[in-house]
Simulated assay, not measured.
Amino acid sequence: MNGILLNEQLKAFLSEDIGSGDATGEAIFQGEEVTASIIAKQPGVFAGRVVLERLYSLLDPRVEVNALIDDGQKVFPKERIATITGPAHSILSGERVLLNLLQRMSGIATMTNSAVEALADEAIRLCDTRKTTPGLRMFEKEAVRAGGGFNHRRGLDDAIMLKENHIAACGSITEAVRRIKAGLGPMMKIEVETTNEAEVIEAVEVGVDVIMFDNASPDEVKQYRSLVPSPIVTEASGGMTMATLPDYAGTSVDYISLGFLTHSTKALDFSMLVQKEAISW
């Protein structure tokens, strides 16, 4: 995760929530020191240690965070995830932003881990898509990795991917690829989305690097995969659910990309509890 971008995002999130100041904290606290714990309320897979360790350093360097778990580890109800010690005002001012991010990231890590287990095919890598929450892509893709998945492209600038509408606008896969290769440097790969056997054959003939089989059934994926030479990477995507994912095991596709890992995930519930005896009034 890009450290500079991480800091910028966290500062923006804190600014959004705190605004010109935490009115409640400023009204009742006078420098009290407390210890708080982050507690899991549901079983799942944890993600967000970098957020846990970075957020309070930006808000108040006096706050000390002791993370008790790593990304990718399973958590259980009532398990302590971390202890946080420092000024009560600062700890509670950052509470909601911290919990929101940990809950969102851990929910995605849990969903990803469940998908990996449902597929049960180590030869196929599960990856995310760009169907992420605006402003949270960096965090959500980090969470996918914590859950045992892999990242597809992070944005429009790090790979060329010809989708259905690009191809329709150019007239054909062949013409779209011709235009790209006319000005493409040697470091950029080309992926093409295909929807039928003819398009798969066309993509192979024009020499792309990655071919996606879009909305293909398991039998179709096997059929299309047999048409693709081994140097070309293959991907299946579209229309899959957690229930149908196991049907794609053994299809020999290299990757399966799943939008629901990020766009349909429920947050994993955490809470912050202050140890009352640690407060000195």
Rank of each mutant, 00 (worst) to 15 (best):
P134R: 03
A143G: 11
T110N: 06
G149L: 02
V116C: 08
S106R: 01
R125P: 09
P134I: 07
I108Y: 12
M138Q: 08
T112D: 05
N151Q: 15
M105A: 14
L102Q: 09
E122N: 13
A115C: 12
L126N: 05
G147R: 00
E140D: 04
R130T: 07
R137F: 13
K141I: 03
F139N: 05
A109W: 15
E142T: 10
G148E: 08
T112I: 14
R137M: 11
N113W: 13
A120N: 12
D121M: 06
D128Q: 05
G148W: 14
L102N: 12
N100H: 03
G135A: 04
T110R: 01
R130H: 04
G149T: 04
E140I: 00
L119I: 09
S114Q: 09
L119V: 10
E140R: 00
E117M: 12
G135F: 00
L99G: 08
D121N: 12
L101V: 02
E122H: 13
V144P: 01
V116L: 02
L126R: 01
E140A: 02
A120H: 06
T110I: 05
A115Y: 04
V116E: 04
M138S: 13
A115Q: 00
N113F: 15
T129L: 01
A123V: 10
N113G: 06
E122R: 10
T129V: 05
V144D: 00
Q103D: 13
L119Q: 05
A109Q: 06
L119T: 11
T110M: 04
V144M: 02
M105H: 15
R125Y: 07
M138L: 13
